[in-house]
Design a protein around this nucleic acid. Sequence first.
DNA 1: ACCTGAACACCGTTCAAGT
DNA 2: ACCTGAACACCGTTCAAGT
Lengths: 269, 269
Amino acid sequence: MQNPRRESRRDSMDQERPLPSVVERMWGREPVTRRGPRPRLDLATITAAAIEIADAEGLSGVSMASVASRVGVAATALYRYIGSKEDLLTAMADGAAPPPPEPAGMSWRDYLTLWTRAHRDIVLEHAWLLSVDRLAPPLGPRRLLWLDRALAALDGTGLDHGEKIKVASTLTGYALTDAALIHSIGGGDPTMENAAITGAADYGEVLAGLLDPVAYPALSAAMRSGVMHGAEGWVDDEDFVFGLNLLLDGVEALIGQRASEKQRASEKS
Amino acid sequence: MQNPRRESRRDSMDQERPLPSVVERMWGREPVTRRGPRPRLDLATITAAAIEIADAEGLSGVSMASVASRVGVAATALYRYIGSKEDLLTAMADGAAPPPPEPAGMSWRDYLTLWTRAHRDIVLEHAWLLSVDRLAPPLGPRRLLWLDRALAALDGTGLDHGEKIKVASTLTGYALTDAALIHSIGGGDPTMENAAITGAADYGEVLAGLLDPVAYPALSAAMRSGVMHGAEGWVDDEDFVFGLNLLLDGVEALIGQRASEKQRASEKS
DNA sequence: ACCTGAACACCGTTCAAGT
DNA sequence: ACCTGAACACCGTTCAAGT
């Protein structure tokens, strides 16, 4: 049912580890061109064009044809630079990330709060990331720089490397979750493409009409209480901080635990 | 650039609140048919067929044609039951969820642990949910039943309705994040469709080769320490519990806070 | 070596025509 | 009223041909 097109990776590049060639190109390792006309494009140009289209029209506006025409080339010429549309989406997901915020001597907690919020804001600015982002671990230079800065913020807390990575990836997930929530409620979507609901109040009312209070007792009670009609809208920065602090409180507890373990160990010797 | 097809909702149904008609159908409110031949299908049948295809071949195997042929009908007949493919995906996302686990007298913490793990496992069994799930708040009967049970588990903790909902949605996000992590690392994907990386060890090695230790100091240090080569694989249940406990510790702290507030208030009066 | 244009095998969706 | 079949306007990707 449709011929599988997998395995468009591992072309070119003499190197022991096979690596998707898009990833190579994301790191600036364009193949060394010798003979023939100079290439008119590069991956960064193509990616930037695709991102502009996605920002303006949503992901559905991004086709090989539309990207190609934006950079002034036939659709088929893109395949000189990219193995497939999948590859393009991968490159877009990395390319949409600006440099991470600088630590500037903050506490780990302050920095990670800033970091997570900034991450969330990026996703809101490029809402199409929500449809692209989830499936692969980051391999591009921009995303990995974000990861690096989160790990760096946790230096000196006594957490080991594995714990730091897990904290960072949990925070990444939180940023995505919060962005998805805001987006779906109708927060910051210029094209309104996927907002099934136009406002929080609507959501509550729709639910209230749908629910059988016997089958859905707790949810019905919540809806009847009017949670969805908060003074300044349902999803706001306060909500973001609320959930984030649940997480950071947990991290703080862990750090405290590690610190007291260390102290006990040093007292023993 | 492609004619916009929005606003295929709000057809039929005499009701004050306009509601996507798929949502109506998900709740069993099929339009009352009087004249003409009886319909051969219903939304549940179509949705189940689509889910089976997605489970077997991934989301890319799901086309109007493939779904229609599985239920023995021409592709165009599906439009009697569904407004668009988007609608089908919405119905699939709800239909893939089995009934939530029963509380059975557990503590809120035990139940939410079970709940979140079960949620995560569902996403792993239907990995295509990761590409479908994120954008709209749940409106289907199955998903809302999950939400109801999470809220119910938090009854008696002193949290208000808004707080309970935020806790539940944070846990949902965590389940998705964890599933995405496991999936991308190559965990449980029969079709291996989106696994850019075939194993955790590979990921670490690939990264190690890519990274400039000056530009990515903390991440390089983590990779050099060999975090990615844990004894029983990188992502396991222990990791799931680790991150989840960060969250639940935060929730527990909040519950404690609410409880002491209440006590202080009652002492005053 | 890069880029084009034609071609292929698909898509989702519409609409008039049959029952 | 349901379902079909033809048709439309797209897709992503290939490949031979031009430079």
